[in-house]
Nucleic acid binder design. Structure first.
Lengths: 173, 173
DNA sequence: CGGCAAATACTAACAGTGTTAGTTATGACT
DNA sequence: AGTCATAACTAACACTGTTAGTATTTGCCG
């Protein structure tokens, strides 16, 4: 409860919160362990009491993101179009986090990268459950993920009524 | 023609070549100005005689990539499916470069990021030319870009005959 | 209640990064 | 040959992630 103690009390949570904020403010590439420690008011090495390193911290962040994405999809029912729109809603609400989850967080080879791939695969499961063939599921995933990426990167303007526009793009063909 | 001169002669091209190699070997995040200078056998600040900085160098790299992607699409004719497969072929042949072009190279705000967005938009033009509506073009772009990203990130295994598999995914619905 | 161990914070330091300032060598042109 | 822009260099700064070693606080156990 205290405000200023030697033992911060919930450094881990505070770091993750600061990281989320920095993530959405400046993008994943700008995440800096030292800057986070500074923001939370702690010396840089203290971070290592709660995370094995910057990469582990970003992985924890991604884990949060995948849980939230799953909740979005969960709440969208069983209509593929609605699930797709929920996927897009999550990405648009947390663009920095989404990039962290699906861009190359830091590395590709390490165990961290391997877990990221597994988490992404898990995020794919709800889509796979909605359709008949694996090809169809991959098609839908690619479509929705690609659209999310393009939108997040500012490549698709999205005027007024963005959801209608996204719906129109998704329902083409 | 000489081997070792004070004036390297074609440092710019050598740096770009080394960068391409590092890009495909270790991914865009690992690009290091000092490492590139080292690889080419030159002091780090010499790079600044040819590029305004690391970001400018990566942008030159991306520019190369967009030109090559355009060539791929150019050579694919006018069938949307074939163009899509050509798009995927480029991404699969140059995964690191593709990530550099469509991931967030370094920043988002700066003029570099703005040019990147413009280049991406230009890459979209050939797709737009093949279909009737803008919505349809965005649909196709999202689909093919999303699939490229998933494949590159190892999210879609692609057994034997990868092209047939990609074709099957693209032609769903 | 005193003391001890674990948890958690700290400072100091190392190697690496991008970048700038200031200096020196080279190549080309008059 | 002499001049000058080009393109290389060395030295330095501020920043990064990370490690080692040290101090403080908390919670528990006697």
């Amino acid at each position: 409860m205290a405000e200023r103690k030697y033992h911060h009390g919930n450094l881990r949570a505070a770091l993750l919160a600061a990281a989320r904020q920095a993530l959405e403010a400046n993008g994943p590439a700008s995440l800096s362990l030292r800057a986070l420690a500074r923001a939370v008011g702690v010396a840089a090495p203290s971070v290592y009491n709660h995370f094995a390193g910057l990469e582990a911290l970003t992985l924890a962040l991604a884990r949060e993101g995948f849980a939230e994405l799953a909740a979005y999809l969960e709440g969208a029912g069983h209509d593929p179009l609605e699930v797709g729109l929920a996927y897009l809603a999550f990405a648009r609400s947390n663009p920095g986090l989404y990039r962290l989850m699906f861009g190359e967080g830091r590395r590709d080879d390490s165990a961290e990268g391997e877990e990221l791939r597994a988490q992404r695969k898990a995020a794919f499961a709800p889509i796979l459950a909605l359709v008949d063939s694996r090809e169809m599921a991959l098609h839908d995933w690619a479509l929705v993920h690609g659209l999310a990426s393009l939108v997040i990167d500012g490549q698709v303007p999205l005027g007024e009524d963005p959801e209608a526009q996204l719906r129109a793009i998704l329902t083409q063909r």
